[in-house]
Design a protein around this nucleic acid. Structure first.
Lengths: 349, 349
DNA sequence: TTGAAAGCGATACCAG
DNA sequence: CTGGTATCGCTTTCAA
């Protein structure tokens, strides 16, 4: 009576089955897990009873016993202040997707982590390892997990900033952002661009800072004036507005390279509305994972961060580390430039 | 030596801290959790030692003790065969996002569940409750969790198909699809449409079946000939092709209602390319969560499934049930029609 | 073959 | 105010 009102009947445990079947806990456990060598009759009897009572092993208890949880944490830290705003960003969506798929292939589940919250609340979750994407500078989350002895995959900078434990429990997945940006700029230059403008996010993400640096260096080497529009945050309208300002500026660019996720069809519409034509009049390369880029007219050249491949690598690194296998300390990737019609022809026709 | 090669040093436990500090386990636990009433000196001393040793409580053990995990499972079942293909679908992205946010607000984490796998592998995860979106007919996942006594939120049909446990541990979040579809059709009719064509997915999802039924009934009531294009699966190109076929068909529609997620800007491009103009020539309503619909020219009317609100309700229902609070058995929603310029003017200008 | 008992790691109750 | 001890539910070793 005292406990029946809480949750119908308290869940049936291993001992309940044992009692009902008239055997010991060990026998039940073995019978259900196919372990030990019991007579087939006993095994079957125990199974019947277990089924009849609706017995389900308690996952937490069995994990405590096993010493692992087969759960991986995933956190996207770029916009730490707003908890989980990856919604409109195709990149994060695909990353979550790919991470989950890769984890499942290794027998792990994925837990979406809070990016903010009371102190180190993330340590309360029973995780075997964590993948921290786009860590902020001196990221406390990376530090906390590493200090707790929980394997982490993040980028090199975050690991370097953390303490020495990083050497034993940290692995990295990183991007050669300078290489990628130069690849795009060189490509646009070859295609005839002389005034390449860039749209960047004013975020803490490594990518933006490194990319902007690389862009400025690249311009300096050629004695060109950099033209950058910074965005305060994600958001379609803000991005489109920034592009308009760029196009209407004193020295209109002949090529545009967006570093923030942007909806390719809408961007093209906006550009057309300003009276510019892609690619004849303006070359275009977008950093995006939005597959709509393939279907626009013209199809839009993109710089892709290969969420599928990087997530796969991250999970593999993490799982190797968790399961005690030696392996690479990390993997270096470069974003992939996929050239399509929006940047394929000379700008000065 | 025997264990040092597995993971550097085995994690430091509560007893280790107790021994090092020269006190008992209880004292350490109390000191760290702010419980009990210890002299400030002892408390501080224990904390120092704990910090020095880098002690972190084992989450699994503490969860076993607590009797709950504060973890919610989330599964999207519409395309069960392909594990986690919600990538390109804005709806699932936002749903995951909203569920995670709502769960965190209640102090719960979210685990992304496999949609397929060895038998009832999902029961191995330490979950307090599960949110099963778009369950398939006779969904085994719903049945398994319910049988295991783990609270489930899904739709009414899934709960009804499961056994009687559903009454105690099941809650539902459901949509009045017929109402929503009729709302759209009525709206289009008022705006002057006479031949409304529909693009539907050939999936197991309740929504498509119920919607198509509602559409056919609606047409029958008016003695109109239904015009439906079925899609074998998700995919931008397939959708656009289907629309083209519809527009080029023997009796071109004067209004289009898409039930599958589609990229609004691309859809508009496609329509324009067939020489049709929205809304003068063709009214348009899209079932989508893609916020790009707001920024197209003209802005596209949408039917939204309110992922934010439904996820919030689902989590609340689940948490109430888990924490033993009485509450509604479920919540009925209707997709929301957001009327914009693409369907606001008479088709026959 | 079967079962008793010892953990897994942390918390809560009571006696000291 | 502190510390032994039982407990959470399961697996596994080791005697019988």
């Amino acid at each position: 009576m005292s406990q029946s009102d809480r949750s119908s009947v308290s869940r049936v445990r291993l001992v309940d089955v044992a009692r009902a079947a008239g055997v010991s806990k060990t026998t039940v456990s073995d019978a259900l897990n196919g372990a030990g060598r019991l007579p087939a009759a006993t095994r079957e009897h125990v199974r019947q009873v277990a089924r009849r009572l609706g017995y389900r092993p308690n996952a937490t208890a069995r994990l405590l016993r096993a010493g692992h949880t087969r759960l991986l944490g995933l956190a996207a830290r770029e916009y730490v202040e707003t908890p989980w705003v990856y919604a409109d960003l195709a990149y994060f969506g695909q990353l979550v997707n790919a991470t989950t798929r890769a984890a499942l292939a290794h027998g792990y589940g994925v837990v979406l982590l809070p990016t903010s919250g009371p102190d180190d609340c993330w340590l309360d979750m029973p995780l075997d390892g964590v993948f921290v994407v786009d860590p902020v500078a001196g990221d406390p989350m990376v530090g906390d997990f590493l200090a707790a002895g929980i394997p982490v995959v993040s980028d090199r900078r975050a690991l370097a900033e953390a303490v020495s434990e990083a050497q034993t429990a940290g692995r990295w997945v990183d991007f050669d952002n300078e290489y990628a940006v130069r690849q795009v700029l060189d490509h646009l230059e070859e295609a005839g661009a002389e005034r390449i403008a860039v749209v960047a996010g004013a975020t803490t993400a490594c990518f933006h800072q490194e990319s902007v640096d690389a862009y400025q260096d690249w311009c300096a080497e050629r004695g060109r004036e950099p033209s950058i529009a910074y965005l305060p945050g994600p958001g379609i309208q803000q991005t489109l507005d920034a592009v308009e300002r760029l196009l209407d500026g004193p020295v209109p660019p002949d090529a545009l390279f967006t570093l923030v996720e942007v909806n390719p069809p809408l961007l093209l519409d906006t550009i057309r509305k300003r009276g510019r034509s892609v690619p004849d009049d303006l070359l275009l390369v977008c950093t995006t994972e939005d597959s709509a880029a393939l279907y626009t007219d013209p199809p839009v050249s993109t710089l892709s961060f290969l969420p599928g491949e990087t997530a796969g690598a991250a999970v593999e690194l993490l799982v190797d580390r968790i399961e005690g296998r030696e392996g690479d300390p990390g993997r270096l990737f470069s974003a992939e430039l996929q050239i399509r019609a929006s940047s394929a022809f000379p700008a000065t026709a």
